[in-house]
Structure formats: C-alpha cells, structure tokens
Design a binder for these strands. Structure first.
Lengths: 237, 237
DNA sequence: AAAAATAATGAATGGCTATTCATGCTTACC
DNA sequence: GGTAAGCATGAATAGCCATTCATTATTTTT
C-alpha cells in the first residue's frame, strides 16, 4: 500500500505541469476517485503483498530466516522470484514487515481483550490465553517469532528493542496495577516478573511447536501457568 | 581428541603387520607410553581444538551462527581459515561440538550441586542459580544457546531433542520428587512446569544479554524467580 | 643434519542464491 | 482493437563465503 501511493505520486510529480491539460486532469481525477480507493490494480497489489507475506511466514517458520530461500517464498506464494522485489526491498524487509504488521495486530487484540477486564489476576490470565492462542491459530507466525526474535544481529536487536518491548510491557503494566491495588506482592520487581512470565509462556510455545503430540490443551496450559504465577505473586488473602 | 586417536589407529592398522619388527615395536611402545597420554603433538592439537571452540563461542555468540564467518572465527582464534578444517568437519560441526561439550559439562555441574541437597525447594533454587550463573560466567556460550537452540532446521531439532531435553528434565525430576514427598501440589503437570520454569529462567538470560545495565543481581533474580515458582507450586503449609 | 612426517597456511575454487532487468503479458482506456 | 501503462516473469548476474589444496613451515625421526 505504502509503496503504491508513493508510486502514484512519483508519476504525478514526474510529469511536467504543462502537460496537465483537460484530458489528463480528468484522468487523474478519475484515478483518484476510483482507482486509488478500491480500483482493480490496487486490490491486486494488496493481494500479492499479502500473499507473499503469508507465504513468507510459512517458509520462515519452517526453515528459519537464513535457510529460507526467496525462491521458496516465491513458489509458496505462486509468484515469480522477481515479483517479490516489486513489493519488498529485500529479504530482510519481508521479515520486518511481517513483524510490524503482526505484532501491531496482536497488541491491539490483546489490549482490546484486557480493556473488558478490571481484575489484574484475570488480566494476566487473559494475556496468557491470548499469547498461547496465537501459537495455535498462527502457528507459522509463532515459529517466526520464536526463531527470529532471538537472532542476534545488531540491526535486529535495535528493531526488537522498539516493537517487542511494547508487547512485553503490557505484562508489567498489569503487574504494576496489581501492586497498586494491593493484590500483588509489592516487593516484586515488575521488570523481572514481566520477563519471567513472558519467558514461561514463550517456552510453552516452543514446547508446542516442537512436539506434535499436544498432550495438554491451550486452556489447561494458560490456566496452569497463570495460576502458578498468580499464586506466586499474590499477597496472601 | 577423538579425531586424534582415530588418526593414530589409522596409521597403526594401515602399516602391514609384517613391518612390525623390533625397532618399530619399540617405537610404537614408546608412542603409546609417552606421546599419546601427554606428548607434545597431542597437547598442541588439543590446544587448537580448544582455541577454536573458544573463538567460535565468541563469534557465534555475537553474530549468530549464520552471520558468523569462518574467517571471523579463524581470526579470533589466530589461526588460518584452513586450519579450522583440520579440527572440524565443517561450520555446523563446530556448533554441535560446542553444545555437546558445554551442555554435558553443565549437566555434570548441576547434578553435582543438586546431590548435596535434599529439599526439592532448595534444589529448584540451586538449579535457577546455576543456570543464571552460566549466563554471567560464560556470557558467549549463553548467547549461543539462546540463539541457536531456537534455530529451526530439522537437523538441529533432532539434535536438540537429544541433548537439551536431558538438561531440562532435571527440572521435572525435581518437581516429581517434590510431589512425591507432598511438598508440591500434586495436580500440577511436571511436563508443563519444567518448561515454564526453564522458560522463565531463559527469558531472564535474554534480558541479561540484551541489556547491558544489569539492574538486578544474579542472586536477586534466581531468588525472585524460584520464590515465585515455589509459592506457585507448593501446597499450603 | 637431512629426510620424513605432520601441521598450518591462505589464495583459489565452486556452489549457492539474493537481486536485477530485458522481455513478454495484462489491463485500462480511447 | 490498438495503444500505453503498469505488472509479472525467470534467466542471467554478481557477490559472498565455506571449503579445498598446493605450498610452506615445523616437528620428529634417523
């Protein structure tokens, strides 16, 4: 979408102003009114952008970023290798876009679900449930998160420190609230807890991803983990 | 060491038996008595093997397996690129060797420390402490573990399922023992707990590795995490 | 101290694959 | 139905880097 509008403006500004006679003006008007918002080309582009991202998620998820080949992604998306470069700058750009779009969605989702709830204990449970549900519903994405969030390369680190932290900080927010309202032990450091909690969930994801025999249901797991934490961090009633 | 002894046997069996006259017999005896156990060549080989592993740990740790170049490792080890191939089959072999040797050591260490202790609660604490200490004392190794345990490639997965599980199963052993002796809640599933516990610790490592400003001490952290878990999984007294 | 055996070197090789681009195809408009 | 604009294609390019190997250095043996 982004690159599409840019493209459009490029063409617009590149043609000398003197050429904007009546015909062309009408054409541009037409273009603005019909093509840009919902026109055919536009939709197709968005389609492929999406198709490529979906394919990339699958391929990155199963082979990891480095072992994944552009041609794998192209084949999976049923698109020529070169086509990918009409939509993304390079391989790494695909990964970044994947993160930006998906983590953003995830944050929105979870925040919406949390807004329904007041009790910090319930909130923690809801967070756990959402996070684990992601693993089921978007198995491939979860695998990418699993693998690539760890890849240490300075550029990735910087990125991670931007986006990922937002997500994890939702937890410390909950802990904080719980401490303020006297439900959680006040001496615990939210900075540690959030990490521990995320780590526990994340490790469960890994379990899920690596084993195909899912011995426990998602609800059992969310239940058990948040219950441990709640018992662990709550003040005695 | 391994490849060295193989080498020796290769030479031994390759020379026809008829050649073993008195002189050569004495030579072999000499070789066996002096060179093999502590001779010069042997030590030097072990030296370089080790030097390369140390260098590799550093390089893998800072750049990740895929971004690490053999030439980086060679430079770090102060050795020619080609030399590495006298000690390892290929790049991936370096990584595997690293794991085998280090995780094995770690398991031995932790088991020794645990043997001193009876109380499952204390054991859990000790495990946490050891694991986190690893992150401090062998920062680079910890980074490699962090990064590469996640790398999804079928060969790695298989490997992981062999060695790594041994390590994590130490936790479930402790939980089990605690449940049998009526200290831990019997309805909890050790299969989940061990993962959650490991995940929490592991996430703490990540925190440590990514942030340079170490806001919390290792003991604080081990304390806090095991305390949460202990509260969480213990039966009310 | 020469010869033989072993080890180390690093430049050259070769395979692999991200990226490009000349070409052909589709669609949208007249 | 012809034309132009934008799209898609995939073979060719180009760069990177693991691995090899002819050569040099070192160590051991006689």
């Amino acid at each position: 979408m982004n690159s599409h509008s840019l493209f459009f403006f490029y063409y617009l500004t590149a043609s000398p102003a003197i050429h904007i006679i009546r015909n062309e003006f009408l054409f541009i008007l037409f273009f603005l009114l019909f093509l840009l918002p919902s026109g055919h080309t536009y939709v197709k582009k968005a389609d492929k952008h999406q198709k490529i991202l979906v394919a990339a998620t699958k391929v990155f998820g199963s082979k990891g970023f480095f072992s994944a080949r552009i041609s794998d992604i192209a084949k999976e998306a049923k698109v020529a290798d070169g086509t990918i470069y009409l939509y993304f700058h390079n391989k790494y750009d695909i990964l970044l876009t994947l993160f930006e779009e998906e983590i953003a969605k995830l944050i929105v989702d979870i925040k919406a679900a949390l807004a329904q709830e007041e009790d910090p204990r319930r909130k923690l449970y809801i967070f756990a449930l959402h996070h684990l549900k992601l693993v089921i519903e978007k198995k491939e994405l979860a695998e990418v998160l699993q693998m690539e969030l760890r890849q240490s390369s300075d550029s990735v680190k910087e990125y991670r420190i931007t986006k990922f932290v937002d997500y994890v900080n939702i937890i410390s927010g909950i802990i904080h609230q719980g401490q303020k309202s006297g439900i959680f032990r006040p001496e615990l450091k939210p900075g540690i807890i959030k990490r521990a909690f995320f780590g526990a969930l994340d490790e469960m994801s890994r379990l899920w991803i690596l084993n195909s025999d899912h011995a426990y249901t998602i609800d059992d797991t969310a239940d058990e983990i948040s219950s441990i934490f709640l018992n662990g961090i709550s003040l005695p009633a």
